[in-house]
Structure formats: C-alpha cells, structure tokens
Amino acid sequence: MLNKFFRKKRIWLALIWFAALITASLFWIIFLPAAAERMDFSNILTAPSLEHILGTDLLGRDLLARVLCGAGISLGVCTAAVGISVWVGVCLGAFAGYYGGWRDRVVMGFVDIMLCFPTFFLILAVIAVMGPNILNIMLVIGFTSWMGTARLVRAEVLSLKEREFVVASRLLGANDFWIITKHLIPNALEPVFVSAVLGISSAILMETGLSFLGIGVQPPTPSWGNILSDGKSALGVAWWLTLFPGFMIFTTVLAANILGEGLRGE
C-alpha cells in the first residue's frame, strides 16, 4: 500500500529534506550548541564565506549554526504542538461521534466557537498574558488547531460506528471505551495523518510568525522567525540574514505539504 506513496520523486525529495534537516539540526544542537550563541563582534554582518558558510548576523553569530539550531527548535515546537492538537482532536471527535446527542452538540458547539476566533490574535492575546516561552507556544498552538481533526474524526466515527465489526464487538460484550479505542480510533486515523502533516506546515508558519513579531521563541534561542526579524533591520545590507531562513521556511513548509498531499493520495 505504501508503495504507491513512495513512487513519486517529489515525495522522496521531501523525505530526504526532512531527514537531512533533522539530522543536521540534531547534530548541531547536541555537539555544537555554543556555535549558535558565540558572538564575534569583529565579524558582524559578514557575507557568506568559507569560514561562515551562511554569513554572520548582527552580533557576529554564525548564521548556519543559528539556522540549524533554529530548525530543531521550530520543528520540535511544531511537532509537539501538532501532537497536542491531534490528541485533543481525536479524543473530542471520537467522543462526539460515538455518543451523539447532546454530547455531540456540546463538543461541536465548542468547535464552532473556537473556529470563530481569529486564531492568530487569540494566540497573541494568550501569549501576551502567559508569557512567550517555548512551552506556552507549543500549548497555545496545539490547543487552537485541533478543530479540523476533531471534525474529521467525528465524521469517520459516525460512519464507522454502525459497521458490522463494531456491532460484532458490542455483541462480544465490549464496553464503549474498548470499542472507541480499539476499533473506532484506529480506523478513523487515516485522514488524521494527512491533516497532521499539513498541520505541521501551518504550525511552522504560525510559530515563525510569532517569533518574527517577538512574542514567539525569545532570543538568544534561535528560531527561523526571530532570525528573520533580526534580518529585517539589516535588509539592505545583509541579504543572507533574510534569504537563508526564508528559504528554510519555504522549503520545509513545501516539503510538509508534499508529504501531506502524498498521504492524501493514498
């Protein structure tokens, strides 16, 4: 079944991109953590050279190191956020779909309310109150992007719960919890994979946006967003500060979308 997935060249490219990115950023974070923070005031805003392959930033820090560590941070935060949103979405969606009735209406009403909020501003407000640290960002992005998953899971569960294998399980004496966790959720997960991978791409954009505005990952911890933000002030002078993180964001989001679409094609 997965063979069809691996057939397209672009999916391989996307996977290689992620593999390389994750490996490189883990390597830098584990073995060269100081490289991202080492300031060298004699070398501020230098263009890409042999010594600093992507150049240096306003404080003389090596851009390559910062970008790769930033990758780790960004990907880590976003994956965790998506993880939270999938968990919440699956649980609420399965609950609503299985029980129906007033429970379903309450949950779906909650979904509708959440969808009414302009998510970005909601996150801004929450971060402003709770403070911009990595954990808060993860939680906030996670708890504001579960709604799509919940709806998907609820739809799947609604159609699955009357299937014969579920009835058979009920006849064996299985209780609701068993049916939901052992039968309904595993069978409802297929569309969730797609939505999760696509969710990573939107989470990256969200986190980048927050960091760019200064309320995401705080300096000196690097994130593509705050590197971009630094680069904004030196735009005319140091093109590399904008180009490279911008390129990373673009390519990573593209790769995530390719993987998501590829999974959907299954």
Partner: peptide
C-alpha cells in the same frame, strides 16, 4: 451465550486488526 454471523464477511472484521487480534478479542473482553 449468544453470537451472530453477518452477511458480509469482510465488513464483519476490523480491517485494522490482524486475525490473531480478532480472535483474541472475545477472550480479552469476556
């Protein structure tokens, strides 16, 4: 004490479960 066999054999088995798990279910539940 009572069980049922359904018309469509494919639909009466959970597509995500291996035969081993399907057969283990009655014991695990009961």
């Amino acid at each position: 004490k009572t069980q049922m066999i359904f018309q469509d054999p494919f639909l009466s088995l959970d597509p995500k479960m291996k035969v081993r798990d399907i057969l283990a279910e009655p014991t695990l539940v009961g």
